[in-house]
Nucleic acid binder design. Sequence first.
DNA 1: CATGAATGAGTATTCATTCAT
DNA 2: GATGAATGAATACTCATTCAT
Lengths: 208, 208, 208, 208
Amino acid sequence: MSSSPSTMPRKKASQSRSRATVDALVEATARILVRDGFDRASTNRIAEEAGVSIGSLYQYFPGKEALVAAVLQRHNRDLMDVVRRALAEIAGAPIAVGARRLVAAAIEAHRIDPQLHRVLAEQIPRIGALAEVELFHRDAYRLFRSYLEDHRDELGALDLDMAAFICVTSVEALTHTAVIHRSDLLTGAVTALIEEASRLVTGYLRAP
Amino acid sequence: MSSSPSTMPRKKASQSRSRATVDALVEATARILVRDGFDRASTNRIAEEAGVSIGSLYQYFPGKEALVAAVLQRHNRDLMDVVRRALAEIAGAPIAVGARRLVAAAIEAHRIDPQLHRVLAEQIPRIGALAEVELFHRDAYRLFRSYLEDHRDELGALDLDMAAFICVTSVEALTHTAVIHRSDLLTGAVTALIEEASRLVTGYLRAP
Amino acid sequence: MSSSPSTMPRKKASQSRSRATVDALVEATARILVRDGFDRASTNRIAEEAGVSIGSLYQYFPGKEALVAAVLQRHNRDLMDVVRRALAEIAGAPIAVGARRLVAAAIEAHRIDPQLHRVLAEQIPRIGALAEVELFHRDAYRLFRSYLEDHRDELGALDLDMAAFICVTSVEALTHTAVIHRSDLLTGAVTALIEEASRLVTGYLRAP
Amino acid sequence: MSSSPSTMPRKKASQSRSRATVDALVEATARILVRDGFDRASTNRIAEEAGVSIGSLYQYFPGKEALVAAVLQRHNRDLMDVVRRALAEIAGAPIAVGARRLVAAAIEAHRIDPQLHRVLAEQIPRIGALAEVELFHRDAYRLFRSYLEDHRDELGALDLDMAAFICVTSVEALTHTAVIHRSDLLTGAVTALIEEASRLVTGYLRAP
DNA sequence: CATGAATGAGTATTCATTCAT
DNA sequence: GATGAATGAATACTCATTCAT
C-alpha cells in the first residue's frame, strides 16, 4: 500500500514533458527486463533504451529499484483490472458459475504479458521495496473474500479468511505455473485447466 | 534434470579433506545467504566464511552459481526426503488418509529451514543453472503421480497428469505461502490448514 | 587583489528585485556551507534553499565558485570592519595599549560567525578564485603596517615589513586556533589569551 | 592518535608484493596531489598513476580519504622527525639557543616538500578522518611543552600550557606562511626570519 | 593442492551547467 | 527575466575470476 520513500518517484511529473520522460523510462525498464533480464538492467542501459539521459533518470527515480517497482506496480494493476472486471460481472452469479469465470480471468490476466510476468516472478529479488509484490496477492485475496461474504449462503460453515486464502493461493499458483511452466496445458482448449481448477475450488467451497 | 556442466563440482571430492572443504563451502554459502542475502553473498565472502582461500573455492566450484546451486540441491533433497518418507508410509492407505498425511508432510518439509527456504524462494534469480529449482516441483509431481496410479480405483475418470499438477501445485503453494507469509495460519494447531488443504485435494480427487 | 572575472557577479543587481535574489543566494550558500559542508553545497541545493530557480542562480553568478567567493568576501569584510574599527580607536594610543586592543579585536572578529569561519577555513579549497582568501591577511597586514609606521618612534630599528608580518601572522593564528580548536582557552576570562598574545607582540616590538 | 576505521589500511601488507603496491599507491597519491590537486585526485587516476589496478587500490584502502590520510600521516611524520631531532639536540641548551634552533627546524621541516605541504594545507578538507591533520600541531605542542618543563627555571611564572600554545602556534604559522606565501622572506639569508621569530618567542618566554 | 594478490569491466549515482519554453 | 527539465562527464566502488608463487 505505502511504498517506501526510496521507490517513490521524485517529482510529480505533471507537465507533459516530464510525463513523457517518466513513461519512456518505465517502458524501457519493462522492455529491458524482458529482453535482457533483471541483472543486466542497469540504470545506464535503461536510460539509453529510453532515449533519455542518465541524469534525467535520476531526476525522476531514486534508483533501479524504483524503476522496477514502477513496472511491477503497473503490471499488477493491469492484472488486477482483469480480475476486478470479472468479479464485477459475476457479482450476482452463483459460486459454481463465478469460480469458473474467475479462473478464466486469472488465466487471462497471466496472459497479458507472460514474458514480463515471468521475469517479474523469477528474477526480481523480493527484497527491500520490491517485497511489495505480494500486493497483487493481497488485493486479490481481499476482493475474493468480499465476494465470498456476499455469497455466504451458498457456503457451508467456512472460515472466510481461510477459504479465501485457500482459493486465491491455489488458483494463482495453478494459473501462474500453467502459463509460465506448462504452456502445454493451455494448448487447444484452455477449458481443461479451467474446468479442473474451478472444480477444485467449487468442490472445496460447497463443504459440509 | 541434469545440471549443466558449469554447476557440477569440479572434483569428486572423494578424499576426506576435499570433502570437508566442499562441505564447508556449501554450508558457508547457506549461512551467508540467510544472514546477508543473495546479493551480498560474494565468492570472496563465502570463502572467508568457510575459512578457505578464494583459490580453493574455485578449485571445487566453477563459480558462485554452482555454490548456490549446491545449496539449492541440498535443500531440495532435504525437502524431498520428508515427502518421500511420507509417501512410503501411506502407500497402502486410502487417498482420504494419504492426502492428509501428504499435506502435513509438505508443511513439515517447508519448516526444515524456513529462513533458507525463503531466501532461496525470494532472492535467487531463476536464471541460468539456477532455473533448475522447479526440480523439487517436478520430483514431487512424479512421485505423487505414481501414488495416484496406485490408487486409480479410488479416483474417478481423471487425467492423472492434470490431477497431479493440480494437487502438487496447490499444496506446494499453500504450504509455502503459509510458512513464508502467513505464519499466523500455523500458530496453535496446524490442523486447520492441514484439514482445509486436504479437504481441497480429496474433494477434487473423488471427482465425477 | 582583483577577483578573476569568473567570480564577479554577472549583473550589477541595482534593481531591488535582483538585489534581493542575490542576497538570498549568498545567504543560502552561507547557511548550507555551515549546515551541510562545502562538498554537499551543490548549486541546485543552494538555489532551492534560496527559493530561487537554478536558472536564476546562473543569471547572477557564473557558478558555484562565485557564490562561495561572495560568502568569503562578505565574511572577510565583516572581520575587517571589526579590525578597522579597533585600529581607528587606537590610532593615537601607545603600542602597549594598541596591541591589547588589537588582539581583543581579532578575537572578537573570529567570533562573529565561528561556524562559518570554520567551514571557510577548513573546507574551502584554496584554489582558483578561492585562493583569494589571504585577502583578509593582506588587508590586515597593510593596515597594521601603517599603524606601525605611525608609531615608529616607539619601535626599535625594526624592519616594518617583517614586523607587520610577524605580528599579524602570529595574532591571526593564535586567535583563529583558539576560537576554532581551543575554545577552552576562551572560557571565563578571555583576558588570559589577550594578555599573553599582546605580551608576545609588545615584547617583540619594543626590541633593541 | 586513533585514526577512524575507514582510514585504516585494509590489510597488513606484510608481504613484499603487498608492501610494494601500498607504497606505490601512497606515492602516486602524493604525486597527483601535487600535480593535479585534491579535486582531480580520483581513485581511478591514482591507481593508474601507481601502475596498479583499481581493484588493488580498494584491496588496501577503503577509499580516497584513506589514501590522502596516509600521505598526510607520512608527511607529518617526516616533519615531526625534523622537529624531534632538533629538540634532541637542544635538550640541554638554554632557551635562547633552543628557540633559535627550533625555529630553524620548523623552517627546515616546512621545506621538506613545500609543494605537497601547500596542497595538504590548502586543498584537503578538514573533515571526516582528514580532520586529524592537527595531529602535527598536537604532537609539536606536546613535545615543546615537555621541553619547557625541563627548562622551567629559565622561565617566569608562566602557564606552560598557554606558553606552549602561544609558541607552537605562532612559530608554525610564521614558518608555514613564510614558506608557502612569502618565499621572498626566505631568499638569501634565512637568518632574518629565524632571528625575528626566535626573538618573538624568547622575548615572550623570559617573561614577568 | 593451497594461497591470496591482482585484475578491470561494470554499476550506481552526483552535480555543475545549459537552454527551450 | 524566470523557470526547471535535461544533460552527460566524471567518480567511487564491487566482485567474479585468474594465476604466479
